[in-house]
């Protein structure tokens, strides 16, 4: 600290403003992405795009109706398989657990959460696609469902832990059994948080592409059943954006805009609800 005072002031100002610039750049990325998608995607977003099947290259007027429905079906399957397991497991961690075992469950959940999504795709491929001998909506749903489990587990646990102990005591003191108190007081008290946590988890897996490429794969037509391959928005975006056709690029932008909007609205909505909830509680 024996540099001249002036130098120290200068370094101070320089470094602090650099930090500000870093923050500015990081934050502006989101707006750049949004801007590009709105500009490039918004122009090509039409009603037919939402309601029609894809057309062969060069033939105008193609849409992505099958991919939108397909994404919905895959997500529904994922929610049906992943949410209950994560939710009930989360109840165990928050309400019943001892010491060592829950710690291991938590740690494993966090590690599983960090597994690359493409590896989850391989997993679903080996346990569903290989025995069935073909790609299917079911396999895609299970891949995303497996990804949901650790996320839902941890968020459910967190929101149940946030329920004040005094509510549990109140219910037990009235002669409720522990399981009854959990079902009728603790879970309802934490329900809003848990539901938004589930929404966040769904929004996260809704944008996943890698686990779907070789599970639900792709389909140029309506999927004929749960055991058949289906188009999904993320996979369509990938296929179209990587292609060599101008027309498909435009459709990729439009589909990208839809996907981004769905994910961001769900995300922002859930976070705003949570923020308001915590500020009210305090």
């Amino acid at each position: 600290m024996n540099r001249p005072f002036f130098m120290r002031k200068l370094v101070n100002a320089l470094m602090l403003s650099l930090c500000g610039v870093c923050a500015l750049v990081s934050v502006s990325v989101l707006f750049i992405i949004l801007g590009y998608l709105l500009w490039n995607g918004g122009r090509f977003l039409t009603w037919t795009f939402l309601t029609r099947l894809p057309t062969p290259v060069g033939e105008p007027g193609g849409g992505m109706a099958n991919a939108i429905v397909g994404s919905g079906k895959v997500l529904l399957l994922a929610a049906l398989t992943g949410v209950p397991v994560g939710f009930v497991g989360g109840i165990y961690l928050a309400e019943f657990g001892g010491r060592v075992f829950p710690f291991l469950v938590r740690y494993t959940a966090d590690l599983l959460n960090g597994v690359p999504s493409i590896v989850m795709g391989i997993f679903a491929y080996t346990v569903v696609v290989l025995p069935m001998h073909h790609f299917s909506t079911l396999a895609g749903g299970l891949a995303l469902g497996a990804m949901l489990i650790p996320i839902v587990l941890r968020s459910t646990e967190e929101f149940l832990r946030a329920v004040p102990q005094s509510l549990r005591e109140g219910a037990l003191a009235l002669g409720a059994s522990k399981s009854r108190a959990i079902a009728t007081v603790v879970i309802p008290a934490g329900f809003q948080g848990i539901a938004t946590g589930i929404l966040l988890a769904l929004a996260r897996v809704a944008g996943e592409t890698a686990p779907l490429i070789f599970t639900s794969a792709n389909n140029r037509f309506w999927s004929r059943g749960w055991n058949q391959p289906t188009a999904t928005l993320p996979v369509m975006i990938w296929t179209y954006a990587s292609s060599a056709y101008e027309d498909w690029h435009r459709q990729a932008w439009a589909a990208g805009l839809i996907l981004l909007m769905l994910v961001l609205v769900a995300n922002a909505g859930a976070r705003l609800i949570l923020a308001r909830r915590t500020s009210v509680a305090r």
């Binding site: 004040p164 005094s166 509510l167 005591e169 109140g170 219910a171 003191a173 009235l174 002669g175 409720a176 009854r180 009728t184 007081v185 309802p188 008290a189």
Partner: peptide, 26 residues
């Protein structure tokens, strides 16, 4: 043997449901 706690701990339900809780449980 009922109990009332140091800090009031009504359930996040309506006034009616709070009082009815013990009755519904028992």
């Amino acid at each position: 043997v009922g109990m009332v706690f140091q800090k009031s701990n009504p359930f996040p339900k309506t006034i009616f449901e709070n009082v009815a809780y013990g009755l519904r449980v028992n």
